[in-house]
Simulated assay, not measured.
Amino acid sequence: MIRALDVARIIFFYILIGSVVLFSPLGPLPSYFLIIVLSLIFMLVSGIEIRPGNPVVGTTAATLAMIALFMIIYAAGGFYIDGLRPDFANALLWGAVLQLFVATGEELSFRNYLFADLDKTAGRKAAAVISSLGFAVMHLPSLYFLNAGPVEAGIALITIFTASIVMTVLFIKAGILAAIGFHFAWNFLQYHVFGFSHMDAALEITKTGFTLLNGGIFGPEASVPGLIVVAATLAAVWYYYSRKERKTAGPEK
């Protein structure tokens, strides 16, 4: 059962990191470095250890999912490719550094602290749902500032919630590096390779057609193909680990 003190601590942490993301004058890299430090402090106070794990499955799953999503939207006419940016190397380098900080900060906070803390008191299923709802809600300001329509915003929140469940499963089964690997690869490919957002990317694309197909300025999480691909990724990751555990357990006697 969740105690009032546990709820208060988690809400305080949530407000704290939300304030850093929204109001910090430090810039993205120092802000996410601060989130990493805050997450480690709260983990220390709560007696939660870091489970490093293996990043391979998470990174691979996100890479395959984002490539599939790029190809689906392109084949359906959701954008056309203008070409490669002349300064694509700088975009890739900056993107890699930025998304490493973002993925590490958000996964330490939402998975290795919030989920792990709730897991001890509320149980695994409730912890996964509550922490993933918090993760989705954290994206509301971005949806607002980018003027996402109500339908696209709704799809984006469901997609982000589902992606959070994917990263929670990866954290449970393979440690925090698996969740960070998924988060990093998804964001890096989406924002800095394929150019699905307003950030500098290796590719220059022009979106065409309905925003429900390409997600508009927010990115493919706000699209129907994005929701379908993330749901399929959750099913694939769940199946992978279920099959792996059955093999490890061996035949029933």
Rank of each mutant, 00 (worst) to 15 (best):
I81C: 08
F33H: 09
F42R: 07
T206R: 06
A65K: 01
K173I: 05
I130S: 10
I180F: 05
I228M: 08
A89H: 08
G53I: 10
V56G: 04
I180E: 02
V97F: 14
A156P: 05
G18I: 10
A65V: 09
F110A: 11
I172P: 00
G123P: 10
F33G: 15
L170S: 03
I160L: 10
E106R: 03
T159N: 12
L189H: 03
A96D: 06
M43C: 07
P25R: 10
A91L: 04
E252V: 13
I160N: 00
F23E: 12
V37I: 15
T60C: 13
G18V: 11
I73K: 00
S242N: 14
I217E: 11
I165M: 06
V224C: 05
L26A: 15
W238L: 14
A76E: 12
L133D: 03
T121I: 11
D87W: 09
R9S: 11
F194P: 02
N187G: 14
L108Y: 03
V229E: 00
D87Q: 12
N187K: 02
T121W: 11
I2P: 05
F79D: 00
I17C: 05
H198T: 13
L227R: 00
E204I: 13
G18S: 15
N90F: 15
L40E: 08
S197H: 08
F13Y: 13
S142V: 12
F12E: 14
L212Y: 01
G226Y: 01
G250C: 07
Q99L: 15
V57S: 02
V166L: 04
G219L: 02
E106M: 09
V129G: 04
L189P: 03
G226I: 04
F194T: 01
E252A: 15
K247M: 14
L34M: 13
I2D: 02
S31H: 00
R124K: 14
I217W: 04
F145R: 05
M138D: 01
V137K: 02
I160F: 00
W94I: 02
D82Q: 11
L92E: 08
F101Q: 04
I2N: 06
R51Y: 10
L177S: 13
Y32K: 05
V129M: 06
P220D: 04
V169M: 13
A76D: 08
V169L: 15
N147P: 04
V57H: 03
D82W: 07
I67C: 09
I15S: 09
F135L: 13
S164C: 11
I130Q: 04
L170H: 05
A128K: 04
D117Y: 13
Y14C: 07
P150L: 11
I228N: 01
R243P: 05
I41A: 14
P30I: 08
R243Q: 14
N147R: 10
L98F: 15
N54Y: 06
I48Q: 07
A91S: 15
S31G: 14
I130Y: 11
A222Y: 00
R51V: 14
F161N: 05
S46L: 07
G209H: 07
D119R: 14
G181R: 02
